[in-house]
Simulated assay, not measured.
Amino acid sequence: MEAVLMKAAGGPEVLEPGVLPKPEIQAPTEVRVRLMAMGINPLDTKLRQRGTFSGQLPAVLGCDGAGVVEAVGSEVSMVRPGDEVFFFHGGLGMAQGNYAEYAVLDQRFLAHKPKNVGWAEAGAAPLVCITAWEALYEIGQLSHGQRVLIHGGAGGVGHVAVQLAALRGARVCATVRRPEQVNFVHGLGAERVIVTEQEDFVAAVRSWSQGERVALALDTQGGEVFARTVESLAYYGTLVTLLDVPLDAAVWKEARVRNLKIGFELMLTPQLRGLAAQQERQTRILRDCARLMESGVLKLRVGARLPLREAAEAHRRLESGGLLGKVVLHTRALDGEAGA
């Protein structure tokens, strides 16, 4: 089968088209999926730069996948050949990722693809949907009427988080980097959109909230953004971050004085630590998101689609910044269906 192999850690050029044996079902509850599309995430670029969690090379990256069930093990009951599915699995170094034409995984980690959603959108969805859901609904305990600040509202996780927050009835403020992203994020449900290259987001949040600040903030950028977001939170508020946090003592002192709750969202933990029950819980989240997608109230924006063999270029585009939504690869099965 066609696959993209990472043969060393480094720049995008280390991703090379290659050929691997078609994976075989090894357990009675496993399923083989013929992949159609796979999302590219910042996680993929970090693993490419630094090496996978296992350190084994060559490796196949890619945690997001969408495709058609081709074969099933003897005890599979949740799907059957011909079913259209999407999922988050593999790509961390321990199991084959989805920059390939086929993947094998347990049936417990599959969700049925929304019927009215294209392959590219389905392939783009798993990581960002699960991450935004866990961060806002589970860790952040977002409730109706709360003010929430979402950083990177035009990005992969951010544009899903804005929609999920709006669906919960929150009042949403989001940051973006560029003026041309403002209308897009307003259209997702944001009440206030701050262009960070034009405005100081702390002052803008204070003005928008009439001095009350926000009850919940989602940090998708880390570093200085995390530190300054502390200033944007109301007392007894919650700050959820996707990244490592600064060790500046002054930041933590201010967070403590405000009685903030600091939450960490790393949706990779179930795979990294072999927590199958938590992987199943995440798959249930993906199924809930599939229903929202099918009803049309949750939409995935795909900013660029490229053939699987152009994975290196896909990484370059993601790292260049400024895209709306996700970058997606597609296999030869969709080469003739650019809009799929």
Rank of each mutant, 00 (worst) to 15 (best):
S232P: 08
T29F: 04
G55A: 01
A227E: 12
G11R: 13
L105P: 09
G339P: 01
Y99L: 14
L105N: 07
T29C: 04
T29Y: 06
L239A: 08
C289D: 07
K7R: 14
R171S: 15
T52A: 08
Y102L: 08
A304G: 02
A340K: 00
Y235P: 10
L266Q: 09
P179Q: 05
L268R: 05
R213Q: 14
V104D: 01
A9R: 09
E2I: 11
Q181L: 13
V195Q: 08
V182H: 01
R256P: 02
Q221K: 03
V193A: 10
G145F: 05
A304W: 03
L47Q: 00
L216V: 14
A132E: 07
G339L: 13
V185S: 03
A103E: 10
V31Q: 05
E310R: 15
R177A: 15
R108G: 14
V297F: 03
F226T: 02
E254I: 13
R48N: 05
R228E: 03
G67Y: 00
L268T: 02
Q49Y: 06
C129T: 14
V104G: 02
E310G: 11
V297W: 07
G73N: 06
A8D: 09
E310V: 09
A135G: 05
G39V: 02
E16P: 05
E138N: 12
V202R: 09
Y102G: 04
I130M: 12
V117I: 13
L188N: 03
E121D: 05
V69Q: 06
G10Q: 01
E191D: 12
G325C: 06
Q181C: 06
L92S: 03
K7C: 08
V117S: 07
R206L: 10
N98F: 03
L243A: 14
L268I: 08
G145N: 11
G223A: 09
A161W: 04
A227T: 10
G91V: 02
S143Q: 15
Q96P: 08
M38F: 08
E30D: 06
L275K: 14
Q163Y: 01
W119F: 04
E30T: 05
V117K: 01
R273H: 15
A170H: 02
I25Y: 00
G169A: 13
G140T: 07
G223C: 03
G222D: 07
K22T: 08
L188H: 00
L149Y: 01
G223M: 05
G140W: 05
E121Q: 15
P246F: 01
V72F: 02
R206I: 06
G11Y: 06
Q26F: 03
V162L: 07
L306P: 00
Q279K: 14
R316P: 04
E24Y: 10
A3D: 01
K115N: 10
L218C: 10
I139H: 01
E84L: 09
L188I: 00
E84I: 06
R281W: 07
R177M: 08
V148G: 12
V162P: 09
K115G: 09
W119L: 08
F264H: 11
R284Q: 15
Q221S: 13
L164P: 00
L323V: 12
